[in-house]
Amino acid sequence: MRTLSTKRLIILSVLLAATAFLAYGPAARSAAVITKAPLQVAFERLDGWSSAGSQFLGDTVTDALKLDDHIFQSYRNESGQVTLYVGYYRTAGKVGAAHDPLVCFTGQGWRIGERIRGEYSLGGKASSTISYSSMIAERQGERELIVYWFQTNGVTSSSTLGQKVAMVRDRFVGAGEDNAFVRISTSLGDESPEAGRKRIFAFIDSFYPAFRGYVVGKPGSERS
């Protein structure tokens, strides 16, 4: 018990130090300089996927999440439909502002199961991967598969802790401050979780290279 308490204290100390550094450390650039197209414009279309409608968050939600930009849009192809949500932040001080879906979904009455953390190689390329978390949420006969990650410049993390560590490292080397929370979901219905994962990862193959390029300011680039 003593060891566990010490471990928790160390983790808490690291998180507090990282949060303080992100909030008050030297800024890499001014947040007022915005040269990127809004996400809703930049990702209105994706190769191989057609738009299936957008949702817009009210001011109360965007203020609560401290969003600088966001997109909440569904896409469809022959395999079915997925819904993309990206909460985007332009300053390091907002790392951690996004809520983990585990908190949000349970608060809305969803039952959570099959939680996984893993890595996905885009298009089967081992040199281009994302680190992600996933879960299945069930409520009143509905089943949703959710895959999500936390973006720090060109790096993905499966947790907010990993995101904070990545941002601290980037600030030390003078990298940018752009960060985001990315969530992709699909309704399973009577499908197996594997069928839903196949659809979501096919979407990620189309979406992520363009998204990473958007974040780091190099359209079309991929993580190496």
Rank of each mutant, 00 (worst) to 15 (best):
S127A: 11
Y148R: 03
A31W: 04
R111F: 07
V82K: 02
F201S: 13
E177L: 06
G109E: 06
A27W: 04
I34S: 10
N77Y: 04
V103S: 14
T129Q: 10
K94T: 12
A92D: 09
A126E: 09
T83G: 02
E114I: 01
A195Q: 15
A27I: 04
R115P: 02
S187G: 14
S79L: 12
A126Q: 11
R139H: 03
P209K: 08
I34N: 09
G220N: 11
A32H: 09
K66N: 09
A210G: 10
L188F: 13
R212L: 09
E142D: 15
P26T: 01
A92G: 11
Y132A: 02
S131N: 08
E177W: 03
L84D: 00
A32Y: 06
E177C: 05
I71R: 02
S185C: 08
R117M: 12
I71N: 01
Q81G: 07
S192Q: 12
E177A: 08
S121P: 01
W110K: 01
I184V: 15
R223V: 13
H99T: 10
D100Y: 07
G220T: 09
S133F: 05
A180K: 00
L102C: 04
V216S: 07
T62P: 04
V182F: 07
A210S: 14
I10C: 05
V147E: 01
A28R: 05
G118V: 11
L161K: 05
D100S: 13
K7D: 05
E191Y: 09
L102M: 14
S133R: 09
G176H: 07
S121Y: 03
I116K: 13
N153G: 03
A175R: 12
L9F: 10
H99W: 03
A166S: 15
R183W: 03
R139P: 02
N153K: 07
P209Q: 07
S5M: 14
V82C: 03
M135D: 02
A98G: 04
S13P: 06
A92C: 10
S134G: 15
S79E: 13
A97C: 08
Y85W: 14
I130E: 01
G196S: 06
L67A: 01
A137G: 11
A126F: 07
G118D: 15
A166Y: 07
A180I: 00
A195M: 11
D205T: 05
D190K: 12
L122R: 00
I136R: 11
P209F: 11
Y208K: 02
F172N: 04
G176V: 05
S74Y: 03
I10Q: 08
Q73V: 12
L145Y: 04
T83W: 01
Y148G: 01
I146N: 10
V165F: 13
P38M: 04
A31I: 05
L161F: 15
G107N: 10
R171D: 09
A27Y: 06
I34C: 02
L67H: 03
L12R: 13
Y85E: 14
G87I: 05
A37T: 06
S134T: 15
R223L: 10
S133K: 05
G154D: 08
T156F: 10
S121T: 02
E194L: 15
